[in-house]
Design a protein around this nucleic acid. Structure first.
Lengths: 168, 168
DNA sequence: ATAAACTTTCAATAAGTTTTGAAAGTTTAA
DNA sequence: TTAAACTTTCAAAACTTATTGAAAGTTTAT
């Protein structure tokens, strides 16, 4: 496969993965484009390469900055803004984990905590089933949260190592 | 909070989490409803409790069965089908991981493998950046895959344990 | 102060996804 | 075999989310 074709396919693959995981397809594609660009790109270049409108390009670039995956760059003597993606896979994984933990996991933990304060008759099987489900899911969610917390703190990428062997 | 209110809130929370992670909101709500039901429910009961149509209830119940999260049950002397959810949090997590690994991670690994066979000039910086991005992401994805593989094989729930402490 | 270069916003529209409900299909009991 | 009980299908409609593009806003150079 030639480079130009491979680039298109990479952008497509990354976009598809994003949309399957609840991330805007175009945002993932813009990210992919920047990931494989040696140079920082302008809004204009992103628009042209992905065939998207100015508004769309601008909005997704801003979102990528909020997610901590892309940075603005200024070039000497240039009026335009340039956008550049962090290329380190481990750092990308951490940023995404951090953002989704904050946006999604934490609110769920909060709800589950409230739900475990439910009042009811301990002898009622409906009540017992409810409490058990909520408590089991809470435990799992808390452990996911703690693991992510540890992952976020780790400077080193244990995932590139062989920690998974420990699970036998 | 009273049981009835808590149940509604649980269904809502689970549905929201599902939709944020690319899972049909209603499917997640049907799952939540069955998770907190002591008894297996009929299509009719699901329709009524979630205020959804027959077609919608039927389709989401079937999908939950495909995902391995819900089973059909037959009751002696009853003509209707009853649906019952596996209540074990660890088993739910494993089923979801298994299904998404198969549907999403594996196709991405396949694409990445193809992309690493790209032809080009080793001296071209564009080519080098591309190869490095693809190769780094491949490594990460393979490790995620291996870790999931191990998780799926594990009968025991290492997540309920304290494995996360190992990451320091 | 002006105007050109550039970025951001947002209402309208398009695209994508989910839901409905009635009709078709299937199973069971008599 | 019939018909009632139940399940499945699927085209149309409703709903949700993403995209466009022109107008408004901002910055910079002169």
């Amino acid at each position: 496969m030639e480079l130009a074709e491979a680039k298109l396919k990479f952008i497509e693959t990354w976009g598809k993965l994003g949309s399957e995981w609840g991330i805007n397809r175009t945002m993932a594609q813009v990210h992919a484009l920047l990931l494989i660009s040696t140079e920082a790109l302008t809004t204009e270049e992103v628009m042209e390469m992905l065939k998207i409108s100015r508004g769309n390009a601008n909005m997704n670039l801003r979102d990528l900055i909020v997610w901590g995956l892309v940075e603005k760059q200024h070039k000497a003597g240039e009026r335009k803004e340039f956008f550049f993606a962090d290329k380190d896979a481990w750092s990308i994984a951490r940023q995404v984990a951090k953002e989704r933990k904050k946006r999604e996991l934490e609110p769920v933990l909060k709800s589950l905590a409230e739900l475990s304060n439910v009042n009811g008759d301990e002898k009622d099987p409906e009540f017992k089933t409810f409490k058990k489900s909520v408590s089991d899911i809470s435990k799992l969610a808390k452990n996911v949260d703690k693991t992510l917390e540890t992952m976020l703190k780790a400077e080193e990428n244990w995932f590139f190592g062989s920690i998974f062997k420990m699970f036998k």
